[in-house]
């Protein structure tokens, strides 16, 4: 018998705890958690990182990240992150926020954090719905999309148009790196992973505000099975929310 060579191809990132998450089966929060954790591991910054959880399905993210963590009031994570970063410029600070959190109740805080060029990283989970409260319309809900508070489908004449946050924030001079990616298949997940890594590098280089928007699923409130919801994301959200680099300042390209 020859020697068995073990090669480790997959393990839990150090930046994740071994807690079981409360997320619904098929939810992409787990994927985005892992991508963030891998980035922290790869950059060797776990020990000096502080995360901020939002109000929303990822409110308990602090149990899953093996990182110092605070929990913000609904929408206020960018303000909290600002306070942390200003008082501790040598720490790495990131927020993890849903679309209700970031694009509705917390619109003011995210716009001004980006405008100031706050040197923080934002992971923005756009699942086009309010997950935690049971599937109400979000500012990102698509036209015609049915939710518990738009039962006939989002009517633009009543609810207005969905907000494209990456595009909006890209117009601000303080934004250094604003990109949108999708988690609907492996190819896209890999791209998202690279973007998250870049976003943290932007912060480490002190270049200013960085945000990665991740188009995500919510099988439970979309009332679809996991595979259907990935397809729905691809066929409906991706066309409306163009993927790619919405704002990348030159200094980021040199990283």
């Amino acid at each position: 018998m020859g020697k068995v060579v073990e090669k480790l191809v997959y393990e839990r990132p150090k930046s994740l705890t071994d807690a079981h998450t409360h997320y619904c089966p098929g939810c992409t929060h787990g994927v985005s958690h892992r991508l963030v954790a891998e980035a922290l591991d790869e950059l060797g910054i776990r020990e000096r990182t502080i995360g901020i959880a939002p109000v929303g399905c990822s409110v308990l993210a602090y149990y899953y990240f093996n990182v110092d963590f605070a929990e913000a009031a609904h929408g206020r994570a960018p303000a909290m992150a600002t306070g942390m970063k200003r008082a501790n410029p040598d720490r790495v600070i990131f927020t993890y926020q849903g679309d209700g959190d970031l694009a509705a109740i917390g619109t003011g805080e995210i716009v001004h954090a980006a405008g100031r060029g706050e040197n923080i990283t934002v992971i923005f989970i756009n699942n086009a719905i309010y997950g935690m409260t049971g599937g109400q319309m979000a500012p990102t809900t698509l036209e015609g999309q049915k939710t518990t508070s738009s039962p006939m489908g989002r009517d633009i004449s009543i609810a207005g148009h969905p907000l494209k946050m990456s595009e909006l924030l890209s117009t601000l001079d303080g934004a250094a790196y604003v990109v949108r990616h999708s988690l609907h298949d492996v190819k896209h997940i890999r791209r998202a992973r690279k973007a998250i890594l870049t976003a943290f590098k932007v912060q480490l280089a002190g270049l200013g505000f960085s945000m990665v928007e991740l188009l995500s699923t919510c099988c439970t409130n979309w009332k679809m099975d996991p595979v259907e919801s990935l397809d729905w994301l691809r066929d409906n959200m991706v066309p409306f929310y163009p993927l790619g680099e919405h704002k990348v300042i030159d200094a980021v390209k040199d990283l």
């Binding site: 502080i50 913000a72 909290m80 200003r86 008082a87 805080e109």
Partner: peptide
């Protein structure tokens, strides 16, 4: 030291909250 004029009192108090979580006088 850190000084920032916030965009609102809502933001200001949450900035204070963030700084306070790190144990500094704020």
């Amino acid at each position: 030291r850190a000084f920032l004029q916030a965009e609102s009192e809502l933001a200001a108090i949450n900035m204070v909250y963030g700084a306070a979580c790190t144990g500094v006088r704020t």
